[in-house]
Design a protein around this nucleic acid. Structure first.
Lengths: 353, 353
DNA sequence: CTCACTGCCGCAAACGTTTACGAAGGGTTA
DNA sequence: TAACCCTTCGTAAACGTTTGCGGCAGTGAG
C-alpha cells in the first residue's frame, strides 16, 4: 500500500494525497475527505522511512534504559508507569515513544552514540544517570535534544527531573531522631549512580540538624536488589552496638532486609526502625508496613514528556535549562518506633543543641 | 555526516563507500580499510531512514508490551531479562531490538496495526496473549513475521513460546496431595489472559490424578497484583471450611497473600500450604519461602530471538510452525506442610481411589 | 473583454542509502 | 597484438515521502 497506489485509486496525484493526509493548506475539503476515507478503508499508513528521510525528522522519542542493571527494577513497574504517562502526552502531540534497551554487555555511551547517529529518534530520554556521565557531553555535542531522568555532576545545561533524594533522606533522619533515634545507619547504592551522593548529603544534613555526630561506620553500601537488602540486614543485625534505625535507599531491597532481620531473630520496626526511600506495591504488604516516601509517577512522566515537547517545538528558549526536583510525600507506615530500651526517654525536646 | 561527505573526504564514490561498509564483494581490501577507518574516526553511521527505505527492511525487531496492564510487572525485571537476552543474540545477527510500549488507553490491535503499517520493524514479538487474540490474525494477514510470547486459542500456525502453566499446576497439586492436602484452592487470573485456561486445566488434571473430586468453590479469580493477592488471601482466610493449600498463578501476588493471611492470624505455610507459579526475587525472601517454579529467562529470551532470526532469514521452511512449552523446575521452599490437624495421617499411600 | 487574483492541483526535485550495470585498467592467453 | 577475463570502481536509478513551484481553471473588478 503505497501513497502512489492510494493516489491511483483516487485518480489524483500523490502530492495532493500527501497534502490531504498531513493537513496542509490548499486542498479542497471534499478531496481531503475522499483521501482520508480511502486511507482509512484501505488501511494506508505513511511509510516511516520515506517520511522521515524526506522530513529529516522521525517524530519518535527514544527512552533509553539499561536492561542489565538491577536498577531497572524497583519492585513496581516503575519505568512502565512513567513511560505510559509519557506516551499519553506524546501521542497527543503526534510523537511516538519507543524504548531503546541497552544490552548489559554493551557500553551505554557507545550504545547512545549509535542510537544518535542512526537517526531513528528526534529526541532522547536517558535514565540511570551516573555522577560522571559521559553520555551528557555526547548528547550535548551531537545536538540531539534530550532530557535526563536523574541528575549528574557533569556540567552543562540540560533539562532534567530527579527525585528529591536529599530531602527524603533529611526528612527520614528527622522523623527518626524525633522519636529518639541517634544511631541511624544508611544504605547507599554500591554504584556510581548519581542519587547516592544526594541521598548521603541529605542524610548528613539530617544528622546535623538533629545534633547527631556523624559516624562513618553507619554509612554502608548496598546492592540495589533483594539480595543486597538481605546482605545489608545481615550486617546491621551483626553490628555492635547495633543501629536502632536504618534508611534504605532502595525500595526493592526492603523485602530482603526484613528477611535478614527475621533470620537474626529481630523484629523489623521494633528492634530496628526503618524508613524506605520510595514506596512500591510490594512493601505495602510487609508487616509492619515500612515508612516510606511516595512520588506521583504518572505526573512525573507527563512532566518529562512536556520537557521533550518543549525542546522539540523550540517554543520556549529556556527549555534546555529547566529542571525539577520531584517532590515526594511521606507515608508513615508502622516501622518507626522509639529505640528499644528507650521507652521511658522523652520523645521530643530531648535533642540537645 | 553524510555518506557523500565521507566519500568526498576519501575522494572515492559513494557507491564504493557503501559497498565497503556493507562488506560487499568487489572492493579492494586497502580501500575498504580506508573507508572503515575514516568512518570510525569521523563517527559516520548510516542513516537508518535512507538505508531502510532503499533496502525495504529496517533490521529492527519490535517487542510489544502493554504498559498499562499490571501484567507487565512480575516482581522481577521479567521483561527486561528476556529482552536483554534477546538483544544479545539479535545484535550478533545484525538486528536491533526496540520495545514498543502500547499506551494503556489505546487498543492493542490498533496499536499493532499502526506499528505494522509504519514499517519501522521487520518482525514483532507480541506478549500478554489473550485466549482470543485478534492481533494474531492481523499479523498473519499483514505478512509481518512475528513470534508470540504466550499461546492463544486463535487458530493459525505461528511460532510461540509459553511457560508450562499446565505442567506447573498439575505438579503443584501433586506435591500438595502427596502430603495429604485435599482442599486445594487455586487463584486464576481475572482477565482473558491465555495462561488462565492452561493453569486451570493443569489444576483439574492434578486433582483427577490424585483422586480428589473437583470443587468449583475452590476455583477463584484474582487480579495479578499485590493487592489482588491480598484480596485472595482474605477470601481464603474467611472460607468455611478453609482450604488447606493454595496454588497462586502470579508470583507478584504472593506478598499480598502472605500479608492477608497474617492479618487474619494465620501462618502462611502452616495453616495454608502454598505453591506459587513462578519464582521471583521478592518471594525468595519471604518467610517461609514459598514453594515455586523457576524458568531460565535468559535462555528463553535467546530462544525467542532465535525464532525471530529463523523467520527472517527464512532458512528453515518450518520456522513458522515451531513452538515451545518452556520447562520449569520445582523449588520446594518451606511453604508445604501436611494439612493442619493431619499430622498423624499417613503421608503417602493413603489417597483412596 | 482584459487583467489580476484566488483556490486547487500536478509536476518534479529532493532526503540518504543500496545496488545493478557498465567502464576502465591491468593481466593472461592464444 | 588482439581478445578476453578479472578486479575495482563510478554512475545512476531506485525506495516512499514531502513540498516548492508553476499551471489551470474560475471569479471578480475594472
Amino acid at each position: 500500500m503505497d501513497i502512489r497506489a492510494l493516489a491511483n485509486h483516487l485518480n489524483i496525484s500523490i502530492g495532493t494525497v500527501s497534502r490531504a493526509l498531513n493537513n496542509r493548506v490548499g486542498v479542497n475539503p471534499s478531496t481531503r475527505k475522499r483521501v482520508l476515507d480511502a486511507a482509512m478503508t484501505l488501511g494506508y499508513v505513511a511509510n516511516q522511512s520515506g517520511r522521515s528521510l524526506r522530513r529529516g525528522a522521525t517524530n519518535t522519542i527514544g527512552f533509553v534504559i539499561e536492561t542489565g542493571e538491577p536498577a531497572t527494577t524497583s519492585g513496581d513497574n516503575f519505568f512502565f508507569i512513567v513511560v505510559d504517562a509519557m506516551n499519553g502526552v506524546l501521542a497527543e502531540k503526534g510523537y511516538d515513544l519507543v524504548i531503546l534497551p541497552c544490552h548489559s554487555a554493551d557500553d551505554p555511551v557507545e550504545f547512545l552514540q549509535r542510537a544518535i547517529a542512526r537517526g531513528t529518534v528526534d529526541a532522547l530520554v536517558i535514565t540511570a544517570t551516573r555522577q560522571q556521565d559521559r553520555r551528557i557531553a555526547l548528547l550535548a555535542e551531537s545536538g540531539v535534544p534530550f532530557v535526563a531522568f536523574g541528575r549528574s555532576e557533569t556540567p552543562g545545561t540540560y533539562p532534567w527531573i530527579d527525585f528529591d533524594f536529599e530531602g527524603v533522606a533529611r526528612r527520614s533522619v528527622a522523623a527518626l531522631s524525633e522519636v529518639g533515634h541517634r544511631r541511624i545507619a544508611v544504605a547507599l547504592p554500591n554504584t556510581d549512580a548519581a542519587f547516592g551522593a544526594h541521598f548521603k548529603r541529605g542524610y548528613l544534613e539530617g544528622l546535623e540538624a538533629a545534633g547527631i555526630p556523624r559516624d562513618d561506620l553507619l554509612v554502608l553500601c548496598m546492592e540495589s536488589s533483594e539480595a543486597g537488602g538481605f546482605e545489608f540486614g545481615r550486617k546491621i543485625a551483626a553490628m555492635q552496638p547495633r543501629p536502632t534505625a536504618v534508611l534504605i535507599s532502595s525500595g526493592i531491597a526492603t523485602v530482603g532486609f526484613y528477611g535478614a532481620l527475621r533470620n537474626a531473630g529481630l523484629h523489623p520496626g521494633h528492634d530496628v526502625s526503618i524508613v524506605v526511600f520510595r514506596e512500591n506495591p510490594q512493601i505495602r504488604f510487609l508487616q509492619p508496613t515500612p515508612a516510606c516516601f511516595q512520588a506521583d509517577l504518572p505526573e512525573l512522566g507527563q512532566a518529562l514528556a512536556g520537557m521533550v515537547v518543549d525542546l522539540l517545538r523550540g517554543e520556549s528558549a529556556t527549555a534546555h535549562e529547566r529542571s525539577i526536583i520531584w517532590p515526594m510525600t511521606f507515608l508513615p507506615g508502622n516501622s518507626i518506633l522509639p529505640p528499644p530500651g528507650d521507652e521511658a526517654a522523652p520523645v521530643s525536646g530531648a535533642t540537645p543543641h
